[in-house]
Design a protein around this nucleic acid. Structure first.
Length: 380
DNA sequence: GATCCACGGGAATACACGGATG
DNA sequence: CATCCGTGTATTCCCGTGGATC
């Protein structure tokens, strides 16, 4: 019996709720292969990448736009399709005649959130380009750089690398990123993607979605992920208007609402679930991708923080103590984590007014990320 | 032995308040 | 009255350590 059949059998015997058909279609951190509604930006991107179709390496480029505008969705999908068409099949013998216009590029998509250091950037690219094992420790950054330089210059196909999520709090800065590839630029081109405009490279702007486009995205996701007709048109509209152009927020809210409905054993999404879910997505908050790529212990601290009762949440210190109690971390360390998370915007410190004690006023911590979706995705 | 980097401890500094000081 | 000071907290900053490779 083959694996596919076994999976199907397992699937059929596992009780599924009559609400969700496909969780991955609903996940705000998984991109679909054909993003909706970014046609004109796609055309501009293809224009910029036009040399590719003439067998030349395109110039370096920077794509920027507001959060939830579909930057990652567009670029990851585009790179995946380009890879299908313009990359040599890995591990198969090239049968096309020499000089043909196919298979002359490697396309590498990097998430700077997961490759947040120079070392990891080099490592991820190298790992994508070679079949060999690439060390994760024990070898210096410059060694990896050298290895990458040789690989890039010696390999026949040139390399186009997209580095997504640059210029964030915890990720590499777009400024200076090209210097990391000094000496390789003959055979390697870089597309950086971020929220800020970049001064150095030619840049392309991607605008926020309008309400109509957002509604289409939500509808598409719901049709893939939910039983037909579960999400009503009015609810789609509510979500789309509320999200104000931010697809991340819209999908995080939808996902949250679904988890609430499933937990309540409901076979439909009541409006009150939707409201609860929208309330759990702070406006101008930090995206799930950022929170989920935090180091393990910090994610753990965040998860515990969400479970605390009102008493434990009154100050950073009490929260830290309660969390430390449930983990093997010391109060001091948890405290520092919490402050650091507040520093980077994942949490917000709100100074509390009433305190019977003397001294500086304490503050309580408010999550600045979609809490329901985080809770569900944290178990992975 | 080298390397990366998540962790951990704790010192240093900032702040709020009330009372002392000029 | 304005400013300084002491005390108790809150917050930030720094740097060493150790696990897991290679």
């Amino acid at each position: 019996m083959d694996i596919g059949a076994r999976i199907e059998r397992r699937r059929a015997t596992t009780p599924v709720t009559n609400l969700v058909v496909e969780w991955s279609a609903l996940s705000p951190v998984i991109h679909v292969s054909n993003p909706v509604g970014r046609g004109s930006t796609l055309e501009q991107l293809l224009d910029a990448l036009d040399p590719l179709f003439d067998d030349r390496l395109p110039p370096n480029l920077h794509l920027y736009g507001p959060p939830g505008a579909g930057k990652s969705a567009l670029v990851s999908a585009l790179f995946s399709h380009l890879s299908d068409r313009l990359s040599p099949m890995r591990g198969t013998i090239q049968t096309t005649t020499r000089g043909g216009k196919e298979g002359n590029f490697h396309f590498v998509y990097i998430d700077a959130r997961r490759s947040s250091t120079v070392f990891r950037l080099y490592r991820s690219i190298l790992d994508a380009l070679t079949d060999e094992h690439v060390p994760e420790r024990g070898v210096g950054t410059q060694v990896l750089r050298q290895k990458l330089a040789t690989t890039v210059s010696q390999s026949d196909p040139d390399v186009v690398v997209a580095i997504d999520h640059v210029d964030e709090n915890e990720t590499l800065a777009s400024e200076g990123i090209l210097e990391l590839f000094d000496g390789m630029t003959e055979s390697l081109s870089v597309l950086t993607v971020g929220r800020k405009r970049s001064t150095a490279k030619p840049a392309l702007n991607i605008p926020a979605y309008n309400t109509h486009e957002l509604a289409d995205i939500i509808t598409e996701r719901a049709s893939q992920g939910l039983q037909q007709g579960v999400l009503e048109h009015a609810q789609v509209k509510t979500l789309a208007e509320w999200a104000d152009g931010d697809a991340h927020d819209a999908l995080a809210a939808l996902f949250g609402a679904v988890t609430v409905a499933v937990k309540a054993d409901s076979n439909q999404i009541h409006d009150r679930y939707l409201t609860t879910a929208m309330d759990a997505v702070p406006r101008n908050g930090v995206s799930l991708g950022i929170v989920l790529s935090l180091p393990e212990k910090r994610r753990c601290v965040l998860a515990k923080l969400l479970e605390l009762d009102a008493h434990a949440r009154t100050s950073v210190e009490t929260s830290a103590a309660a969390i430390a109690d449930e983990t093997n971390l010391s109060t001091g360390t948890v405290t520092r984590y919490l402050y650091e998370l507040a520093e980077t915007g994942v949490l917000e410190r709100v100074t509390t007014t009433n305190s019977e004690r003397s001294g500086r006023l304490p503050s309580k911590l408010e999550p600045r990320f979609p809490t329901l979706a985080f809770r569900a995705l944290y178990e992975e």
